[in-house]
Design a protein around this nucleic acid. Structure first.
Length: 187
DNA sequence: AAAGAGATGGTCT
DNA sequence: GACCATCTCTTTT
């Protein structure tokens, strides 16, 4: 179980995104350890009409233009938080949205945070997984590659069994045809 | 099993 | 004032 190297996130979001599948996102927010395996992601780039960064840098999307390996957190529909892994180089506004995880550790705490919902619904959505891992707006900009962070991206050597599935992104109204959504075969 | 709608607030025009 | 990178509950087949 080693932290993910920042250099592995420095490429194009569309190339980096499928490589995030199978990695482990660890939360130590609040003291307890909760972990989930990345099962579904979506890539967003600066030249992409569906991306928050398409119209340039603003206070909200500032993190996406920063260093790769940091966490970009935003408020969705005024209700839910969504978490992204920043990719690309400094100055390039791109990131990969974490759409779903598979619970790996701390499932009891996830159940509490998710109000006793069935296990398969604990982390099968971008807002849901943030809830289960207690990710809030405070965590925008956290370095996922630093061992001292409360939120980290880890590699436990998991090997994907089968072929990564791709498809169009979800919940957007522009650039709907780009097949930049990736998920594990087991889903 | 699928479809519809309300909640709710920040961000940008 | 419009637009959301969503979720949950309710209503209808």
């Amino acid at each position: 179980m080693r932290p993910v190297a920042r250099s592995s996130l420095a490429g194009d979001a569309v190339d980096v995104a499928p490589g995030l599948l199978g990695l482990v996102l660890e939360s130590r927010v609040g003291g307890a350890v909760v972990r989930g395996r990345v099962a579904e992601v979506e890539a967003y780039r600066e030249d992409d009409p569906a991306s928050h960064t398409f119209r340039g840098e603003t206070p909200r999307n500032r993190t996406m233009f920063g260093m790769p390996g940091h966490l970009y957190v935003y408020l969705s529909y005024g209700v839910h938080r969504c978490a992204n892994v920043v990719t690309g180089s400094q100055g390039n506004g791109a990131a990969v949205l974490l759409r779903a995880l598979l619970p790996v550790a701390g499932i009891e705490l996830m159940r509490e945070r998710r109000d006793g919902r069935p296990d398969r619904e604990l982390t099968n959505g971008p807002g849901k997984l943030c809830r289960a891992l207690a990710i809030g707006s405070d965590h925008d900009g956290v370095d996922l590659c630093s061992s001292s962070s409360t939120l980290r991206l880890l590699d436990d050597g998991y090997e994907i069994d089968g072929e990564v599935r791709t498809g169009p992104r979800i919940g957007i109204s522009r650039a709907v045809d780009r097949p930049w959504r990736f998920r594990l075969p087991s889903d």
